[in-house]
Computed example of a mutant assay.
Amino acid sequence: MTVSCQASVCGRPGRAATGLAGGLSSVNSAWIERGLTSRQTHFLDLIVDFIAKNGWIRMQHLYKAPFTDRGLIDDFFTDEEIEELRVVFRTLRTRAEPADLAA
């Protein structure tokens, strides 16, 4: 699950997608070693799509459609895995802000 930033789309969503590649993919790599179910994979794909479209995500988004269409995040992931996502999302929002606004 790698998202790349092309030169023509490196606005806020582009920077977020680049951060996603480093953050969520590292979480995903650890989870792949443990084995992901098809439902978990689908849920992570929804997250990637949302971030690619919006540039960032908050945990509260995961408790609304389309994320809830097949169940709640709590049904797919452990509390520890959900906390890992929370940390990645926080980091992603920080990286998505332009440097002059982040200061």
Rank of each mutant, 00 (worst) to 15 (best):
F76A: 01
P13A: 05
A30V: 12
L46T: 00
N28W: 02
A99N: 09
S29D: 14
R39T: 09
L44V: 13
F50N: 01
E83P: 02
L101H: 14
R39P: 02
V27D: 15
R70H: 12
R39L: 04
I47F: 00
I57W: 01
Y63T: 11
L92V: 15
S26Q: 13
M59F: 12
H42R: 14
D100V: 05
V9M: 10
F50A: 08
K64R: 14
T94G: 09
L85P: 10
N54E: 06
R15P: 02
T2F: 13
T18M: 07
T41S: 07
I82H: 08
F77K: 00
R93M: 07
R39G: 04
D74N: 13
V87P: 02
E83W: 06
A103M: 07
G22L: 04
R86M: 08
M1Q: 11
M1S: 13
T2D: 15
W56F: 10
L46G: 05
P66K: 01
R58V: 12
H61W: 07
G55M: 02
A65T: 10
E97F: 04
A17M: 15
L72Q: 13
W31F: 02
P13I: 00
Q40W: 06
R12Q: 10
F77C: 04
S29H: 10
D100Y: 08
L24Q: 11
E84L: 07
F43N: 00
R70Y: 05
L101D: 15
A65I: 03
A52R: 09
A16S: 11
S4V: 11
P98D: 09
C10L: 06
V3T: 14
E97N: 03
D75H: 15
S29M: 07
R86C: 09
F67K: 02
Q60I: 04
L36I: 12
A99P: 01
R58E: 15
L36A: 05
A102Q: 11
S25C: 08
S29G: 08
I51T: 05
E80A: 08
E97Q: 07
G23H: 05
F76D: 01
D49T: 12
A65P: 06
G11I: 04
N54K: 05
D45T: 12
A7K: 13
D69L: 04
C10I: 03
F67W: 10
W31Y: 05
M59S: 14
V27T: 15
A17P: 00
A96S: 13
G19N: 12
F67D: 13
V27P: 01
S8I: 09
I73A: 11
K64C: 06
T91M: 12
T37W: 03
T78V: 06
G22M: 03
Q40T: 08
T78I: 04
L36R: 05
W31C: 02
G19H: 04
G55T: 07
A16H: 00
D49W: 04
H61R: 13
G14V: 03
T41H: 06
D75Q: 15
A16P: 01
H61D: 15
R15S: 07
V9N: 10
A65H: 08
R70P: 00
D45P: 00
Q60T: 09
S8N: 11
R70V: 00
T91S: 11
S26N: 14
I47H: 00
L92T: 02
E80F: 11
R86L: 07
G35W: 09
R90V: 03
R95N: 11
G22S: 08
E81C: 03
L46V: 01
